[in-house]
Protein backbone atom coordinates (compact mmCIF):
# COMPACT_ATOMS: atom_id res chain seq x y z
CA UNK A 1 0.00 0.00 0.00
CA UNK A 2 1.36 3.45 -0.79
CA UNK A 3 2.14 5.57 2.19
CA UNK A 4 4.53 7.52 4.30
CA UNK A 5 7.25 5.75 6.24
CA UNK A 6 8.61 7.47 9.35
CA UNK A 7 11.82 6.11 10.82
CA UNK A 8 12.71 7.26 14.29
CA UNK A 9 16.14 8.87 14.23
CA UNK A 10 16.78 8.20 17.90
CA UNK A 11 14.70 7.48 20.95
CA UNK A 12 13.49 10.98 21.82
CA UNK A 13 14.67 12.38 25.16
CA UNK A 14 11.12 13.35 26.09
CA UNK A 15 7.73 12.02 25.21
CA UNK A 16 6.42 13.17 21.84
CA UNK A 17 2.75 13.71 21.08
CA UNK A 18 2.17 12.05 17.72
CA UNK A 19 -1.54 12.82 17.43
CA UNK A 20 -1.13 15.13 14.41
CA UNK A 21 0.20 12.21 12.35
CA UNK A 22 -2.72 10.06 11.30
CA UNK A 23 -3.33 9.05 7.70
CA UNK A 24 -6.53 11.08 7.53
CA UNK A 25 -4.95 14.17 9.05
CA UNK A 26 -1.95 14.22 6.73
CA UNK A 27 -3.90 13.20 3.64
CA UNK A 28 -3.39 15.57 0.78
CA UNK A 29 -0.18 17.04 2.17
CA UNK A 30 3.23 16.65 0.66
CA UNK A 31 6.05 14.89 2.43
CA UNK A 32 7.74 18.25 2.91
CA UNK A 33 4.65 19.68 4.55
CA UNK A 34 4.41 16.72 6.90
CA UNK A 35 8.10 17.08 7.69
CA UNK A 36 7.46 20.63 8.90
CA UNK A 37 4.48 19.83 11.13
CA UNK A 38 5.01 20.63 14.80
CA UNK A 39 4.91 17.87 17.38
CA UNK A 40 4.53 18.72 21.06
CA UNK A 41 7.27 17.26 23.19
CA UNK A 42 7.23 18.27 26.82
CA UNK A 43 6.95 22.04 26.73
CA UNK A 44 8.70 22.28 23.41
CA UNK A 45 7.60 21.81 19.86
CA UNK A 46 9.59 19.69 17.41
CA UNK A 47 9.35 19.40 13.69
CA UNK A 48 8.45 15.97 12.40
CA UNK A 49 11.73 15.73 10.55
CA UNK A 50 13.63 16.51 13.73
CA UNK A 51 12.27 13.25 15.13
CA UNK A 52 11.89 11.04 12.07
CA UNK A 53 13.46 10.31 8.74
CA UNK A 54 10.70 10.44 6.15
CA UNK A 55 10.28 8.24 3.09
CA UNK A 56 7.40 7.77 0.68
CA UNK A 57 4.42 10.07 0.42
CA UNK A 58 1.35 10.45 2.60
CA UNK A 59 -1.26 7.88 1.67
CA UNK A 60 -3.74 5.57 3.34
CA UNK A 61 -0.99 3.72 5.17
CA UNK A 62 1.47 5.19 7.63
CA UNK A 63 4.43 3.14 8.82
CA UNK A 64 6.46 4.10 11.88
CA UNK A 65 9.74 2.35 12.51
CA UNK A 66 11.87 2.32 15.62
CA UNK A 67 11.29 2.11 19.34
CA UNK A 68 8.26 4.29 19.78
CA UNK A 69 7.90 3.73 23.53
CA UNK A 70 7.98 7.49 23.98
CA UNK A 71 5.62 8.27 21.14
CA UNK A 72 2.24 9.04 22.69
CA UNK A 73 -1.26 9.43 21.26
CA UNK A 74 -0.47 7.57 18.06
CA UNK A 75 -3.58 7.42 15.90
CA UNK A 76 -5.65 9.67 18.15
CA UNK A 77 -9.20 10.04 16.82
CA UNK A 78 -8.23 8.64 13.43
CA UNK A 79 -11.18 7.81 11.19
CA UNK A 80 -9.65 5.85 8.33
CA UNK A 81 -6.48 4.44 6.86
CA UNK A 82 -3.96 2.36 8.71
CA UNK A 83 -0.96 2.87 10.93
CA UNK A 84 1.63 0.16 11.37
CA UNK A 85 4.28 0.44 14.03
CA UNK A 86 7.34 -1.65 13.53
CA UNK A 87 8.23 -1.30 17.19
CA UNK A 88 6.58 -0.21 20.42
CA UNK A 89 4.01 2.50 21.01
CA UNK A 90 3.85 4.90 23.94
CA UNK A 91 0.81 5.82 26.00
CA UNK A 92 -2.66 6.66 24.72
CA UNK A 93 -2.29 4.57 21.59
CA UNK A 94 -5.39 4.94 19.44
CA UNK A 95 -7.16 7.13 21.98
CA UNK A 96 -10.59 8.12 20.70
CA UNK A 97 -9.96 6.21 17.47
CA UNK A 98 -13.09 6.11 15.29
CA UNK A 99 -12.08 3.97 12.32
CA UNK A 100 -9.25 2.45 10.33
CA UNK A 101 -6.67 0.08 11.71
CA UNK A 102 -3.63 0.40 13.91
CA UNK A 103 -1.17 -2.44 14.18
CA UNK A 104 1.69 -2.42 16.67
CA UNK A 105 4.31 -5.08 16.19
CA UNK A 106 5.73 -4.43 19.64
CA UNK A 107 4.04 -3.38 22.87
CA UNK A 108 1.89 -0.42 23.83
CA UNK A 109 1.96 1.78 26.94
CA UNK A 110 -0.84 2.80 29.27
CA UNK A 111 -4.33 3.83 28.15
CA UNK A 112 -4.15 2.14 24.75
CA UNK A 113 -7.59 2.30 23.15
CA UNK A 114 -8.97 4.66 25.78
CA UNK A 115 -12.19 6.19 24.50
CA UNK A 116 -11.87 4.18 21.30
CA UNK A 117 -15.09 4.33 19.25
CA UNK A 118 -14.42 2.25 16.17
CA UNK A 119 -11.85 0.58 14.00
CA UNK A 120 -9.41 -2.19 14.75
CA UNK A 121 -6.42 -1.85 17.05
CA UNK A 122 -4.01 -4.79 17.31
CA UNK A 123 -1.04 -4.93 19.65
CA UNK A 124 1.16 -7.91 18.82
CA UNK A 125 2.92 -7.98 22.16
CA UNK A 126 1.83 -6.45 25.45
CA UNK A 127 -0.28 -3.52 26.59
CA UNK A 128 0.17 -1.41 29.72
CA UNK A 129 -2.31 -0.51 32.43
CA UNK A 130 -5.71 1.02 31.72
CA UNK A 131 -6.10 -0.71 28.39
CA UNK A 132 -9.37 0.52 26.80
CA UNK A 133 -10.07 2.35 30.05
CA UNK A 134 -11.69 5.70 30.75
CA UNK A 135 -9.33 8.65 30.89
CA UNK A 136 -9.32 10.36 34.28
CA UNK A 137 -12.50 12.40 34.57
CA UNK A 138 -14.22 10.64 31.70
CA UNK A 139 -17.28 8.52 32.25
CA UNK A 140 -16.58 6.02 29.53
CA UNK A 141 -13.64 3.95 28.42
CA UNK A 142 -13.73 2.09 25.13
CA UNK A 143 -16.98 2.86 23.28
CA UNK A 144 -16.71 0.74 20.16
CA UNK A 145 -14.45 -1.04 17.74
CA UNK A 146 -12.22 -4.02 18.28
CA UNK A 147 -9.00 -4.06 20.28
CA UNK A 148 -6.82 -7.17 20.28
CA UNK A 149 -3.73 -7.63 22.44
CA UNK A 150 -1.83 -10.76 21.55
CA UNK A 151 0.30 -10.63 24.68
CA UNK A 152 -0.47 -9.55 28.21
CA UNK A 153 -2.21 -6.46 29.54
CA UNK A 154 -1.79 -4.54 32.79
CA UNK A 155 -4.22 -3.59 35.50
CA UNK A 156 -7.67 -2.03 35.03
CA UNK A 157 -8.12 -3.28 31.48
CA UNK A 158 -11.58 -2.25 30.27
CA UNK A 159 -12.20 0.17 33.13
CA UNK A 160 -15.55 1.88 32.49
CA UNK A 161 -15.72 0.24 29.08
CA UNK A 162 -19.03 1.04 27.44
CA UNK A 163 -19.17 -0.90 24.19
CA UNK A 164 -16.98 -2.77 21.73
CA UNK A 165 -14.76 -5.80 21.94
CA UNK A 166 -11.52 -6.12 23.88
CA UNK A 167 -9.57 -9.33 23.40
CA UNK A 168 -6.45 -10.15 25.39
CA UNK A 169 -4.86 -13.41 24.40
CA UNK A 170 -2.36 -13.45 27.24
CA UNK A 171 -2.67 -12.65 30.91
CA UNK A 172 -4.36 -9.60 32.31
CA UNK A 173 -3.64 -7.72 35.54
CA UNK A 174 -5.81 -6.82 38.51
CA UNK A 175 -9.25 -5.26 38.36
CA UNK A 176 -9.95 -6.29 34.80
CA UNK A 177 -13.38 -4.97 33.71
CA UNK A 178 -13.57 -2.67 36.70
CA UNK A 179 -16.60 -0.38 36.57
CA UNK A 180 -17.42 -1.89 33.20
CA UNK A 181 -20.67 -0.50 31.79
CA UNK A 182 -21.15 -2.79 28.78
CA UNK A 183 -19.31 -4.48 25.96
CA UNK A 184 -17.28 -7.64 25.79
CA UNK A 185 -13.84 -8.49 27.16
CA UNK A 186 -12.27 -11.85 26.35
CA UNK A 187 -9.12 -13.04 28.12
CA UNK A 188 -7.14 -16.05 26.96
CA UNK A 189 -4.65 -16.27 29.81
CA UNK A 190 -4.74 -15.78 33.54
CA UNK A 191 -6.71 -12.95 35.08
CA UNK A 192 -5.53 -10.99 38.13
CA UNK A 193 -7.37 -10.19 41.33
CA UNK A 194 -10.71 -8.45 41.62
CA UNK A 195 -11.92 -9.10 38.10
CA UNK A 196 -15.17 -7.26 37.47
CA UNK A 197 -14.88 -4.91 40.42
CA UNK A 198 -17.91 -2.62 40.38
CA UNK A 199 -18.92 -4.04 37.01
CA UNK A 200 -22.41 -2.84 36.04
CA UNK A 201 -23.18 -4.75 32.85
CA UNK A 202 -21.20 -6.39 30.08
CA UNK A 203 -19.36 -9.63 29.59
CA UNK A 204 -15.97 -10.81 30.80
CA UNK A 205 -15.19 -14.05 29.00
CA UNK A 206 -12.36 -16.10 30.49
CA UNK A 207 -10.69 -19.21 29.20
CA UNK A 208 -9.11 -19.96 32.56
CA UNK A 209 -10.84 -19.74 35.90
CA UNK A 210 -9.48 -16.95 38.09
CA UNK A 211 -7.89 -17.82 41.41
CA UNK A 212 -10.89 -16.28 43.12
CA UNK A 213 -13.97 -14.35 42.17
CA UNK A 214 -15.13 -11.36 44.11
CA UNK A 215 -17.68 -12.28 46.77
CA UNK A 216 -20.07 -9.89 45.06
CA UNK A 217 -20.35 -12.21 42.04
CA UNK A 218 -22.94 -14.96 42.34
CA UNK A 219 -22.64 -18.29 40.59
CA UNK A 220 -25.36 -18.99 38.02
CA UNK A 221 -24.12 -22.46 37.12
CA UNK A 222 -22.88 -24.00 33.91
CA UNK A 223 -24.90 -22.82 30.93
CA UNK A 224 -24.98 -22.97 27.19
CA UNK A 225 -24.55 -19.33 26.21
CA UNK A 226 -26.14 -18.78 22.82
CA UNK A 227 -24.85 -15.25 22.36
CA UNK A 228 -21.33 -16.69 22.20
CA UNK A 229 -22.23 -18.22 18.85
CA UNK A 230 -22.79 -14.74 17.47
CA UNK A 231 -19.63 -13.41 19.07
CA UNK A 232 -17.55 -16.31 17.79
CA UNK A 233 -18.76 -15.65 14.26
CA UNK A 234 -18.04 -11.94 14.57
CA UNK A 235 -14.53 -12.68 15.76
CA UNK A 236 -13.57 -14.85 12.80
CA UNK A 237 -10.76 -13.23 10.92
CA UNK A 238 -9.42 -11.40 13.94
CA UNK A 239 -5.87 -12.14 15.00
CA UNK A 240 -5.33 -14.67 17.79
CA UNK A 241 -6.96 -17.81 19.14
CA UNK A 242 -10.34 -16.27 19.93
CA UNK A 243 -10.88 -16.10 16.17
CA UNK A 244 -11.15 -19.88 16.12
CA UNK A 245 -13.55 -20.12 19.02
CA UNK A 246 -16.00 -22.88 18.22
CA UNK A 247 -19.13 -21.55 16.59
CA UNK A 248 -21.15 -24.38 18.14
CA UNK A 249 -22.86 -24.49 21.49
CA UNK A 250 -20.39 -23.12 24.01
CA UNK A 251 -20.74 -23.94 27.66
CA UNK A 252 -19.51 -21.64 30.36
CA UNK A 253 -19.78 -21.21 34.09
CA UNK A 254 -21.68 -18.00 34.49
CA UNK A 255 -21.33 -15.65 37.44
CA UNK A 256 -23.26 -12.41 37.68
CA UNK A 257 -22.18 -9.26 39.46
CA UNK A 258 -20.92 -6.93 40.71
CA UNK A 259 -23.87 -7.07 43.08
CA UNK A 260 -22.44 -4.01 44.77
CA UNK A 261 -23.20 -2.11 41.56
CA UNK A 262 -26.41 -3.43 40.08
CA UNK A 263 -25.12 -6.91 39.40
CA UNK A 264 -26.07 -7.25 35.74
CA UNK A 265 -22.59 -7.99 34.49
CA UNK A 266 -21.40 -11.52 33.77
CA UNK A 267 -18.15 -13.39 34.07
CA UNK A 268 -18.20 -16.41 31.77
CA UNK A 269 -15.57 -19.08 32.34
CA UNK A 270 -15.47 -21.22 29.22
CA UNK A 271 -15.61 -24.97 29.67
CA UNK A 272 -13.69 -27.21 27.31
CA UNK A 273 -15.89 -28.43 24.40
Amino acid sequence: MPGLRLTLQAVPPERVDLSPLTPDRIAGRSRAEVAALPLASGNRSLRVDAVFKLAGDPGPELVIEGDGSRLDRIGEAMTQGSIRLRGNAGAWLGVGMCGGTIEVEGSAGAYAGSGMQGGLLHVHQHAGDFLAAAAPGDHQGMRGGVLVVSGNAGARAGDRMRRGTLIIDGDVGDCCASRMVAGTIAVGGAVGRNAGLAMRRGTLLLRRPPAALLPTFNDCGVQVVPILRLLARAWRGLPGPFASLSAGDLRARRSMGDLANGGRGEILILLPD
Binding site: N43, R44, G137, D138
Partner: peptide
Protein backbone atom coordinates in the same frame (compact mmCIF):
# COMPACT_ATOMS: atom_id res chain seq x y z
CA UNK B 1 -13.44 17.62 38.32
CA UNK B 2 -12.98 18.43 34.63
CA UNK B 3 -9.70 17.03 33.41
CA UNK B 4 -11.40 16.63 30.04
CA UNK B 5 -11.75 20.41 29.83
CA UNK B 6 -8.00 20.69 30.20
CA UNK B 7 -7.13 17.82 27.90
CA UNK B 8 -9.29 19.24 25.14
CA UNK B 9 -7.88 22.73 25.28
CA UNK B 10 -4.18 22.96 25.91
CA UNK B 11 -2.33 26.28 25.86
CA UNK B 12 1.14 25.65 24.54
CA UNK B 13 4.19 27.27 26.01
CA UNK B 14 6.01 30.00 24.14
CA UNK B 15 9.36 31.54 24.76
CA UNK B 16 7.87 33.69 27.49
CA UNK B 17 4.68 31.96 28.57
CA UNK B 18 4.22 28.66 30.30
Amino acid sequence: MLPEDHRADPVAATAITR
